[in-house]
Simulated scan of single mutants.
Amino acid sequence: MTRRLRIDATDIARIAVFAAIVAVLGLPGGISVFGAVPITAQTLGVMLAGAILGPWRGALSMLVFVVLVAVGLPLLSGGAGGIAVFLGPSGGYIVGWIFGAFVTGAIVHAGGRKPTWPRTILGAVVGGILVVYAFGIPVQSLITRLPLAETALQSTVFLPGDIVKAVIATAITMTLVRAYPRAFRFAQRPAAPAVKEAAADAAVDSEPGTRVP
């Protein structure tokens, strides 16, 4: 049976907050690489969105961000915005943030479980780096008219910084798990054993002759 994605007011607020976090991470600007794609801190926000919000809500937060950029808000590094950015070398990477957040969340929250260090770092690397590269590199190659292999080789300059961001995202996520578990969706679910125990107690109390005077 397929579970429906339920979005409540709290979810909407969290989705908006993480879209805003990605925007704030772009305020310091970026460092251009080969005059094409800048190195920015914004992918840290992508990793955090997936790791904390989970796959669907994390992806929705990035979708909100991408739509706001598309309509012209200057939310990207250096104050860039508008549909034109999606036609440039960075366009594939930006669209890849949506899918990167989803994959990050799917790995970190696999089976609806509590995040762990191994799954979180794996999710940040696979979703926040590899998936984003999988969208970004082909588009960059197409726009710059460089061979795909050469573009991929040039993109390795991002790796050290992205790995550092994955470690930071993991540390923040695991700190939140301990200090503020309510930030995560799994913490909002009622504990099944407690519910069953309460139901069993109620059933016993309702039987004749079982009440304690």
Rank of each mutant, 00 (worst) to 15 (best):
R6V: 15
I7K: 10
A9P: 12
D11K: 11
I12T: 15
I12W: 09
A13T: 15
A13V: 15
R14Q: 14
R14D: 04
R14G: 06
I15R: 06
A16V: 06
A16N: 02
A20S: 14
I21P: 02
I21W: 01
V24S: 08
L25P: 05
L25N: 07
G26S: 14
G29P: 07
G30Q: 08
I31D: 13
S32F: 14
F34S: 13
G35K: 07
G35S: 08
I39Y: 08
A41Y: 11
Q42S: 06
T43W: 01
G45M: 01
V46G: 01
V46C: 04
M47R: 02
L48K: 05
A49T: 00
A49E: 08
G50V: 12
I52F: 02
P55H: 13
W56P: 03
A59C: 10
L60D: 06
L63W: 03
L63A: 07
A70Q: 08
A70P: 13
V71H: 03
V71D: 02
V71L: 07
L73W: 03
L73A: 09
P74S: 13
S77H: 12
G79C: 12
G81K: 01
F86L: 13
L87D: 10
P89D: 03
S90Q: 14
G92H: 03
I94V: 15
V95F: 12
I98P: 06
A101D: 05
F102K: 01
T104W: 03
T104S: 05
I107L: 06
V108R: 02
H109K: 07
H109V: 04
H109T: 06
G111W: 07
G111M: 09
K114W: 12
P115T: 10
T116E: 05
W117M: 11
R119N: 10
T120I: 01
T120V: 01
I121E: 04
L122I: 10
L122K: 07
G123F: 00
G123I: 04
A124L: 03
V126N: 02
I129A: 05
V131E: 01
V131G: 03
Y133A: 01
